[in-house]
């Protein structure tokens, strides 16, 4: 990014944050933390204030991973009856999520829920639960708003996700780039994009990576 800037190439970041306020022209980022605060509140509402649960983290070096985890835990950790019995990385990957969930289920067969740092891992975790015959026992929470997961929420297979609005982020980045080409230079360094909670109660409003 610094090299691109030095070469006079303007860079607009979408979704993935860089820890700098002067390398990119602007960073348009999902507000993962706030989205996961909402997910955490819904988690407590639907799972209850007691019980064991697991967490599948994303890539451990990624800000998104920790903003999501911290937002979720800022809520759930306030309820001492909710015990996290396993926290492992699934690298934001569906196959890895499945594999990690299988091993978690062997060690902790009584969990009531799993919070996944993205929807790919949530789908992998759900597959592992189906294989173990525990898909009715364990509630799965994802994050992204992937079309397949939105459908699974409507079918009652996944409890909730956070909708990230990637098309909104891409559109805003394109608009910023257009304004830059036309001479504008004063852009907000970081533009948080709200994440909305998608649940069985409101899932009809969502699809195609956004609101219908």
């Amino acid at each position: 990014m610094e090299k691109a800037k030095a070469a006079g190439i303007p860079v607009f970041c979408i979704d993935r944050e860089i820890n700098s306020t002067n390398a990119a022209v602007s960073q348009i980022l999902s507000d993962s933390y706030s989205g996961c605060v909402k997910l955490g509140q819904y988690f407590v509402k639907t799972v209850g204030k007691e019980g064991e649960y697991a967490e599948l983290l994303g890539i451990v070096g990624d800000n998104n991973t920790w903003n999501r985890s911290k937002g979720f835990h800022s809520v759930v950790n306030r309820y001492p009856g909710l015990k996290m019995v396993a926290q492992q990385s699934g690298d934001f990957d569906r196959a890895k999520g499945l594999e990690v969930m299988q091993s978690i289920l062997q060690a902790h067969p009584n969990i009531k829920a799993v919070f996944c740092g993205n929807d790919a891992m949530a789908m992998g975790a759900y597959q592992a639960l189906v294989s173990a015959g525990k898909d009715k026992q364990v509630k799965v929470f994802g994050f992204d708003g992937a079309d397949e997961v939105v459908r699974m929420i409507a079918e009652g297979k996944i409890a909730a996700t956070g909708m990230q609005f990637p098309k909104t982020m891409a559109r805003k980045s394109a608009e910023f780039a257009d304004e830059y080409i036309k001479g504008k230079r004063d852009f907000p360094q970081k533009v948080p994009v709200a994440v909305e909670l998608v649940t069985p109660e409101n899932v009809a409003k969502y699809g195609d990576y956004g609101k219908k």
Binding site: N19, S20, T21, Y33, S34, Q41, N63, N67, P188, K190
Partner: peptide, 25 residues
């Protein structure tokens, strides 16, 4: 929970923080 106090007054701005984890903390 949430960001009402941090964001409600306009005194703090996400653009001032290189790492959003700090801003969220």
């Amino acid at each position: 929970f949430g960001d009402a106090i941090r964001d409600g007054t306009g005194l703090l701005n996400a653009s001032d923080y290189p790492n959003s984890q700090d801003f969220n903390d």
